[in-house]
């Protein structure tokens, strides 16, 4: 009886350790990020983006995704990553199409590196030492690999529900100010 319990416990432990998460990793500037592959509908090449006049800077514009018109968000800008002044898009740039609650949004990243499997147990929930330049509000954890640090982004929080948008706008404005200050420095 007791032995039995022990063994099931052991199995569970093993299973837990074996539980893997599949990540899509991508780069923006010098940072490497990751997102749960289940949230990624697809990854497309950089395409013509139609800018939206009067929209906030976070939105680069609209793209035509096989007949659907979806907004494209400048992730670099949202995450306050510097070095994006050079507006020429490099040929590795991709648009991550993220699906959340039936809404589809595109995010521009510098490049997509790979799809990797990471044991769930290895994801550290607290972003203890992440670069100070990235707003920690959007980070759900980090994965440390040899020589690499992958920051897991929480797209749910980036794409806040409508009610919270006001707050988020303020946040973006604050971020914008920070951004400018940073550049001034």
């Amino acid at each position: 009886m007791q032995l039995n319990t022990l063994s099931t416990h052991a199995t569970r432990m093993r299973e837990e350790s074996r539980q893997m998460m599949q990540l899509v990793s991508f780069r923006i500037g010098h940072e490497e990020f990751g997102v749960d592959i289940l949230m990624v509908q697809e990854i497309i090449r950089f395409t013509t983006i139609t800018p939206i006049p009067n929209a906030t800077q976070a939105i680069l514009g609209m793209i035509n995704l096989r007949g659907r018109i979806i907004p494209v968000v400048d992730l670099r800008w949202v995450l306050r990553i510097g070095g994006g002044e050079d507006k020429t898009i490099n040929r590795n740039a991709r648009i991550l199409i993220i699906e959340l609650d039936t809404h589809v949004t595109g995010f521009v990243v510098d490049s997509v590196s790979e799809v990797m499997k990471v044991p769930v147990a290895e994801i550290e929930p607290t972003p203890s030492l992440v670069t100070s330049s990235i707003s920690s509000a959007y980070i759900s954890g980090v994965v440390k690999l040899t020589q690499r640090l992958i920051i897991l982004l929480d797209f749910k929080r980036i794409l806040k529900p409508r009610e919270a948008r006001e707050v988020q706008n303020l946040g973006i404005q604050a971020a914008l100010l920070d951004h400018e200050n940073m550049q001034d420095d």
Partner: peptide, 27 residues
């Protein structure tokens, strides 16, 4: 006529968008 699927920021001043013959989006 297509609606703009935007859950990030509301877009004001446009009633929607359409797709032109070359695949580009026009507001």
């Amino acid at each position: 006529l297509k609606s703009i699927e935007n859950n990030f920021q509301p877009v004001e001043g446009f009633s929607g968008a359409t797709i032109l013959g070359d695949g580009r989006v026009s507001l």
